[in-house]
Design a protein around this nucleic acid. Structure first.
Lengths: 116, 116
DNA sequence: TCCATCGTTCAACTACTCATGAAACGTTGA
DNA sequence: TCAACGTTTCATGAGTAGTTGAACGATGGA
């Protein structure tokens, strides 16, 4: 990942509501969730949600697909992985101590995805 | 890492100048660098640098130590590792695809890295 | 004490982000 | 064509982040 998209992704994640959206969509897996349901789950107005989703989409962290009257949003795991990879390698120069602390905080590696 | 410090750290990183500062300090290792030198390296005024360093310090990403007339700033690797761990485990629910993409971007993701 | 150096803080300003509600848009089914 | 539904866009205003230059405080040497 380059510098500019990484900054956009970091900015997009640096907001409580958008972090909530990401957490929700991560748990929804590839099938994602429609905007209306996301709005109910994270308790924001439709227009607010649309604003935040657009930022996340511009940052490449979510994708949008229209299905009839609904717009389905899904989390882009590859993009998130690329961001973390950027932080680890490009930004932190593959520093082993960063990696060690990072894996201490996240040791488990679940075998199955569970998302359709 | 909790939610609130993670948001602070993400906000702190989501700025070009501050990302430059982090990259510089990562390469300086534990001995860090004095504010004046950082200002020269990233080409910002002293007051702006002070402002950005304060944000990074409040986010826990850098530490400050006075040495005579100079103030030495050093990057906190553990904090950065904790942030990435938060993103991977708490935010992305240890999603294996995120981890896979992350390690693709970062060449290697050692399961048990000696950390130095 | 005086002075130069180093870094921070302050005030003022600009620019951006965020939030709100109403209106507009696209899709669907009658 | 029309109404209902889900979502986005727009206008507006408040709050916050960022920049600049000058003033300020701390330190060390003469």
């Amino acid at each position: 990942m380059d510098r500019s998209p990484a900054l956009a992704a970091l900015s997009a994640l640096a907001h409580e509501t958008r972090l909530d959206i990401v957490r929700l969509l991560v748990r929804r897996g590839r099938r994602g969730a429609p905007a209306g349901e996301i709005a109910r789950m994270v308790s924001v107005s439709a227009s607010r949600l649309s604003f935040h989703l657009r930022l996340l989409e511009q940052a490449g962290l979510v994708t949008a697909t229209r299905e009839g009257r609904q717009v389905i949003y899904a989390f882009d795991r590859a993009r998130m992985g690329a961001l973390i990879g950027y932080l680890l390698s490009d930004c932190c120069a593959d520093d082993p101590e960063v990696r060690a602390c990072c894996s201490q905080a996240a040791i488990r590696l679940p075998a199955e995805d569970g998302a359709g």
